[in-house]
Design a binder for these strands. Structure first.
Lengths: 358, 358
DNA sequence: CTGAAAGCGCTTACAG
DNA sequence: CTGAAAGCGCTTACAG
């Protein structure tokens, strides 16, 4: 006797003989025609049950759904996507999701899209533009209906290819006057300037910088240096480190930097992890933070507020970026294509969270 | 004059007229036949250039590649996958990637698979088993060639469905004697027991617990309580909190717990974030850690070592899990299906990182 | 090393 | 509300 476990193979075995002979491979699983046959309808009707149930008679709907349930049928979206030109896939190209704020963005981006019936194809590019470009081809081969990109520094050939494909694109985590399509981000340059401002207001005269050398960190650096230059401070000691940044890197870089610039009274670090490392090093050097040496990070990791109240940081809302990036794409996907001229840009801003000398 | 930007539309416009009329949609982009025509070969040869270049004559290869480059052709993997029954997709079902160690696992899992020509379909399930099950159907509709699952607590119907599909499956981040297929993880029960052991060795007699109520946290709790029971400690104060856990939750839960169990001398927290919150609360209550109150977390977040040296924690290697999960799947995918009886299980273990009283 | 034919499992557009 | 026909863009299996 068939057990509950073999529900799919009780009385539909006879169909096997009725199937047209396949020239390729063995039986690969259930097809829409199997469901149609059992339910006594045409394949088109089964298709409608999944894609436009409101256009199917209630009894038919119910009957087909029962067969689907009983057989355990799962539609093949490779076939569906090919046929309809709707992959229901959205690609996200991000440098990394580990130890980073991007993971929050991807989390909510994915949640928002999945509620709307899309799935996310995740592509991790590291921090190189060339790698991003070759990833794009891989990703485009799945025919995604939209793409999330990190940053705004892309090769011309990537921009061009994306334009040719004609799908909605959101750039995130940065800002520019010439987005490819849509954008949800903030200005790294302004962040650098704001941190410089913050240091200046508190009377610091010898600010230094520990930064990764990726595009966005370099934009923050530029804002930082420009604002300082306006205040007449031209020589800013700096240490550029390769991503990914970490506590360890911050810890060993600060002493190096201070050796070169002994009178440093403030350091802007490219990330909270670097800042935490710098703080540890400062402690070992007997420097009190922020009194003798102010340290500012970037990212506002949750734990930092609790564990390192001496650090200033810059808060950025990765969640808001993810939600809005998803919404922008969905608006375009649902809204019809005549909206394609309506570029959308959202600046989510940032907040400098200062620490007062205790 | 056509500029460089319109390379794809210089001299291949004439083909448009030669195309068979489509009954559906407009021209959707380049097809393999467009490349074939330009290169003067059959579509099959173009297909081979992508899928088995070694079987194509060098000159043919070169010629086709130039046309591909010039036209900017990207193969349609929806079609390719449908035709070949190889989607080149692997699905990963994870509760969350934000603020979590899972993000590391997914990072390296994705990197490893992408080097082997696979892409990752990311599905976020939250912490509910029913949500995991419905996600599975969504994911299976893409016909992935393998699946990564988080944990070992799955519904029967999910296990059965996966068995029917017959693709390789790796369960991760936990362990069991009855894996669905393959497994890379460690024992949460043993971790709980080890932490209890750690507390007992240091003479703690009133250990308590702050834990999330998800399956894995509950397994740690069981190990913790069982080991304590062996030592004659039966009544263990505990506070169960809903995921996701956070610093804030830890901070407000500890005082609550201590109000109920005043003589508590040690707390095992379900995560480092909870532990950091508990540490903050202890500080506010004027309790010295670890002298008056020992606190143990879980996860060994990188910053914790630097910023909260008073905390004990349990280190788990999420990276190793990701790499090996990917390898297990790839071995099965490449190794042929007769290896399907060879179950593979890897226990990556864990380390309790104690803090001595300072 | 290369190709003509058939098929992968769906959906569109049309008709009723 | 339902269905027969044609097609989506590839690849398999066979032949040469």
């Amino acid at each position: 006797m068939p057990t509950a476990k073999s529900a799919a193979s009780t009385d539909d075995r006879k169909d096997a003989a009725a199937r047209p002979k396949r020239t390729r491979g063995g039986p690969k699983g259930l097809r829409i025609t199997d469901v149609a046959a059992q339910a006594g309808v045409s394949p088109i009707t089964v298709s409608r049950v999944f894609n436009s149930p409101e256009s199917v008679a209630p009894e038919t709907l119910e009957r087909v759904r029962q067969v689907v349930q009983k057989l355990g049928y799962v539609p093949n979206r490779l076939a569906g996507g090919l046929s309809s030109s709707r992959s229901r896939l959205v690609a996200a190209i991000v440098p990394t999701i580990s130890h980073s704020l991007f993971s929050e963005t991807i989390q909510v981006f994915s949640e928002t899209l999945s509620r709307a019936g899309y799935e996310v194809l995740l592509a991790l590019s590291g921090y190189s533009a060339s790698s991003e470009e070759s990833l794009l081809d891989t990703v485009l081969s799945r025919r995604p209906e939209g793409v999330l990109l990190t940053g705004v520094a892309h090769t011309d050939s990537l921009r061009e290819r994306l334009a040719n494909v004609g799908i909605p694109v959101v750039e995130t985590w940065d800002t520019t006057h010439t987005p490819i399509d849509m954008l949800v981000g903030f200005s790294h340059y302004e962040i650098g300037a704001a941190v410089a401002e913050h240091f200046l207001e508190r009377g610091m005269r010898r600010p230094a910088l520990i930064s990764a050398n990726d595009m966005r960190a370099l934009a923050r650096r530029a804002g930082f240096r420009d604002r300082l230059a306006q205040a007449g401070i031209e020589d800013v000691a700096e240490a550029l480190v390769a991503p990914p940044s970490s506590v360890a890197v911050g810890k060993r870089t600060l002493p190096e930097l201070l050796a070169r610039a002994r009178d440093t009274d403030a350091v802007f670090c490219g990330s909270d992890l670097l800042a935490i490392g710098a703080l540890g090093a400062a402690r070992q050097l007997g420097l009190s933070v922020p009194t003798q040496l102010a340290i500012c990070g970037f990212g506002d990791l949750e734990f930092a507020t609790e564990t390192t109240p001496q650090l200033t940081t810059v808060r950025v809302d990765g969640t808001r970026i993810g939600v809005n990036a998803a919404r922008f794409l969905l608006d375009r996907l649902n809204g019809g294509s005549n909206a394609s001229d309506e570029r959308r840009v959202l600046d989510v801003g940032f907040t400098v969270l200062p620490r007062e000398s205790t």
